[in-house]
Design a protein around this nucleic acid. Structure first.
Lengths: 237, 237
DNA sequence: GAGTGGTCTAGACCACACG
DNA sequence: GTGTGGTCTAGACCACTCT
């Protein structure tokens, strides 16, 4: 039985209240001393909890005034958080269908091996998916994960169509950090036809390396997003 | 006379050492207690400094092991930091030329007014620039700033071609946060010819609202980046 | 066992915004 | 002046990694 740190509990409570709409708009939170009293902790612990949310763009602090829910905080859920596509869309109330494009073991190419800190040719599981939101194909996702970490990933269906849920629930792997590179690509014929858009349409390409809590690289992902869809980010300080 | 907080000094020292190459690779930092002793502060203060850098993706912490410089930390300088294009490129040793496309006062359109929390038609200064790095046109940047904040911006040359340097040094405005939306666009004829690429080439479009330290919106920016260039981001937790 | 980072306490003083 | 967040101290105990 592991104990959940107090600051994490406070943070999760606030996120839940923001996502459920209990807190919204530009509402003011109680002062840090009040929250501290409410949870029976020190102000420093409260600040630790709030800082994470400020960093994610969910809260805004103003010295001498107070701490406020950021405008559109509920819609910014995904901004700087490492959340799988499924969880994110479902939380937003969307219907997500998934078409599996690939699910098999392949030898790591040099770029994949490089990102995962493996040697070329080591076995990795390749999962390719087309995600369809409310009937519209929105994103093509290809992921590569070392077979060593998830031996049966290639042969068993994903839990809830979600790779991240599968890694977490079946293999105990929790992702903590990711580095991403974002660029614009012209749609190849194949990708254009998956999306049902003209060839050479502009697509967002995201390449991601995700690491677990021991900073071991777990997943390399490469995705293309349908024209018209956006990525939101938040920069603090 | 303003005093610089200790954690900021520690952070800036480390950033300088990383950027100058004194610290690099996956080098280990001294332990938190050692750094604390070195600066004559508490461990909590050191942790405050380090946390910011971990969040920016420059450092990696491993419990029971130590704190390390992230791989490619020097190249990730810009990842999650609110830095102007000029500063960023110059720090990377690139030559930046700037062609001014527009510098004038215009009435705020509804989308600009919305983002800046003004009423439609209020005067804003529009600055449009084409940035040329090592001879290649790389980014088209359009910014809108309320005239109230910077009355002479339209008529005076920018300091060092940098809008952010001008806002800081001439008007005392320091940017603290930004929300960005990233998408892929097909190049219009005009933008294609500025870049010297075929029409309908895929471009990265970034729309940004930047806020100052009092959380007042200062700048709306809309930029397009030449095909082949990327944006890097880091997600923590 | 020794050393590291993760969490937390119980205070303190300061800078700032607002009435 | 009052209340807010910003910074900081001087400890403490814990979980984890490595040897």
């Amino acid at each position: 039985m592991s104990t959940i740190p107090a600051h994490k509990r406070i943070r999760d409570d606030l996120v839940a209240q923001i996502e459920s709409g209990v807190l919204g708009g530009r509402e003011r939170l109680p002062g840090e001393v009040d929250i501290a009293a409410q949870y029976g902790v020190t102000r420093m612990t409260v600040r630790q909890a709030l800082s994470g949310l400020v960093n994610d763009g969910l809260l805004v602090r103003r010295r001498g005034v107070g701490t406020f829910i950021a405008t559109n905080a509920a819609q910014r859920r995904n901004m700087n958080r490492l959340v799988g596509f499924t969880e994110d869309m479902r939380a937003a109330g969307r219907t997500v269908e998934t078409r599996i494009l690939a699910q098999l073991i392949v030898p790591a190419t040099s770029d994949i091996a490089d990102a995962l800190e493996l040697t070329v040719g080591v076995h990795v599981t390749h999962v390719g998916r087309l995600r369809i939101v409310d009937g519209t194909p929105v994103i093509i996702q290809h992921s590569w994960v070392p077979c060593e970490l998830c031996p049966d990933l290639w042969s068993e269906p994903l839990i809830d169509d979600s790779l991240y849920a599968t890694l977490r629930d079946r293999y105990g792997i929790v992702l903590r950090r990711a580095d991403q590179r974002i660029a614009a690509d012209a749609a190849t014929g194949e990708r254009a036809s998956l999306f049902g858009v003209p060839a050479r349409s502009p697509l967002l390409r995201v390449e991601r390396v995700a690491l677990d809590d021991r900073n071991l690289p777990v997943e390399v992902a490469r995705s293309w997003t349908r024209p018209g869809y956006e990525i939101a980010t938040h920069i603090e300080r």
